[in-house]
Structure formats: C-alpha cells, structure tokens
C-alpha cells in the first residue's frame, strides 16, 4: 500500500484566504510593472477577467474549447483503454511486460517537445494533440493499472481458483476492486497531464481553431491579457473535466461494488 502524502487538510476559509493573498500579490505586481511602462509583460487578474469577459460572447471562444477538448480528451480516453489492456496483458504474459518496459520508459523519459516535433512529421497539426495526450497519459495509466493488478490480494485470487469462480465474477469482485484505487489516482494525474501536453502540442503545431493557437497568437501580438485569459480558461476547463471524469469513475466504481465504493485501499 502506497503511503499517503503527508499533506495536512487545510480548512476552506484558510485555503480561500491563501488564494486571495496570491491574487492580491499578482495584482500588485501587475500594477508596479505597468507603472514602469512594461504593462505588456504582465496582465493583472482584473485585466485578465476583463479580457475573458470580452471573449465569452464570441462564438470562436466555445469553438476553440470544443476543438481542443474533443482531441485532448480523445487522446486521454484512448490512453485509458490502451493502458488498461496493455497492463492486463503485461500482468498475464511476462514476455509482453519485458517487451513493453523499455518502450514505456522511453516515452516517459523523452521530453514532450521532442515527441511533439517528431510527431508533427507523422500526423496533421490538427490531430497532433490526440497523439500527444495519448502518449503522455499512456505510461501513467499503464504503470498504475499494472501495479494495481500486482497488488491484488493473492489470497482472494486463490479463493476464486478453489471455488472456480467464472472470470466475470472474479473480475468484478476481486480484480476491479484491487485495481480501482490505482486507476482513479492515475486518471487524476493523467487528466492534468493531457491538458498540459495537449495544449503544448497545439502551440507548437499551430493547430487552427485550437486553444493552443489562440495562446500562440496572443504571445506573437503581445496581447498579454489574452494570454492570461486563455491560460485561465485552460486551468478551469482542465479542472472541470477532471472533476467530471473522476465523479463518473467513482459512480461507476460504486455500481461495480454493489453500492459501496470499490476502493479497499486507504
């Protein structure tokens, strides 16, 4: 069982106060930078919100979010399915594990920028973010699911063998509860990762109609307000999708566990 990180739970009021402190510091820094005549270097929170409010009614705003979300989350979904399948195969067949180990290590160790530039030779810039978010998330899901499979209670597996439980029942009663906490944790990590890497791919590949392209254009024309507004959008959209996906997975877990959470890990 992996030990829980030693982070203390912070009361909501204190957490909100901390956020307010940093927003105020940001505003103050932007104010002084502007006074120095370098306003284009840093947009403050109020300026960011003003620009964001101006962007909201534009049809292109939602279009860009939809374009990026479909591709980035598509890559994530592909990685989720492929990672689970490859992990199951690796656990069942040692040669598959031996074969995949260097590949996963290579993907993990290679800088994302190198992969993006290389991938640009293979796929169109419009679909680059699908491939990049897939490649960034795949090793995370694969490693976590494999760990979950390996840590599944061997005594319960012996019980299933003795009672000759059908595969479906063994999967539902033993394998899934063993793997689920690892899968949830890796999805949480993977969802953050896919947005970061996916948008980076859009920026480098200049995918037309994407958030990444808007971010790049804002930088080129020194529209710092737009740059900060789009960054805020990415953070918010990523957080919303992360919450949604994890809520869906937890719900699926409760259904599989017969009404109880599947997590048996603390």
């Amino acid at each position: 069982m992996a030990p829980k990180p030693a982070t203390a739970r912070v009361p909501r009021l204190q957490a909100a106060a901390a956020i307010l402190f940093w927003v105020a510091a940001w505003q103050l820094a932007a104010f002084f930078v502007d006074r120095m005549g370098l306003g284009f270097l840093l947009a403050g929170p109020l300026e960011t919100l003003r620009v964001l409010a101006g962007m909201l009614p534009q049809g292109a705003f939602c279009g860009r979010i939809g374009f990026s979300a479909v591709r980035i989350l598509g890559g994530f979904a592909l990685a989720l399915v492929t990672g689970c399948l490859l992990a199951a195969l690796s656990a069942a067949l040692p040669p598959v594990y031996i074969l995949l180990r260097p590949l996963m290590q290579f993907i993990k160790a290679t800088p994302v920028a190198s992969i993006i530039i290389l991938a640009l030779l293979w796929v169109s810039s419009a679909n680059l973010s699908v491939l990049i978010s897939f490649l960034m998330v795949l090793p995370v899901i694969y490693a976590a699911v494999l760990e979950g499979i390996r840590r599944t209670d061997p005594q319960l597996l012996e019980m299933a063998r003795v009672f000759r439980l059908p595969f479906g029942r063994t999967l539902r009663a033993i394998w899934l509860p063993g793997v689920w906490p690892y899968l949830l944790q890796s999805c949480e990590t993977g969802l953050g990762l896919c947005w970061k890497s996916g948008v980076a791919a859009e920026v480098i590949g200049l995918a037309g109609g994407s958030i990444g392209e808007a971010l790049y254009q804002a930088k080129i024309f020194l529209q710092t307000g737009e740059l900060f507004a789009w960054t805020l959008v990415i953070i918010l959209v990523s957080a919303v999708f992360e919450k949604l996906a994890l809520a869906l997975l937890r719900r699926a877990g409760r259904r599989l566990g017969g009404g109880e959470p599947l997590c048996t890990r603390n």
């Binding site: 005594q155 319960l156 012996e158 019980m159 003795v162 009672f163 000759r164 439980l165 029942r169 009663a173 033993i174 509860p177 566990g257 017969g258 109880e260 959470p261 599947l262 048996t264």
Partner: peptide, 25 residues
C-alpha cells in the same frame, strides 16, 4: 469433483456484503 474451503483466513471480498460473498460462489 469440485472443492470448497474455509481457509485459515476468511478471504472474503471486503467491499461485498456477507450475502454477496456467499452468493458469489
């Protein structure tokens, strides 16, 4: 033929109820 057992440990699926654990087999 087939066998069943009570092991030294209970070996119940912890997230399932007693009824579901028995019905499982």
């Amino acid at each position: 033929g087939r066998l069943a057992a009570v092991f030294q440990e209970d070996r119940l699926c912890p997230q399932l109820s007693a009824v579901a654990n028995v019905a499982l087999v």
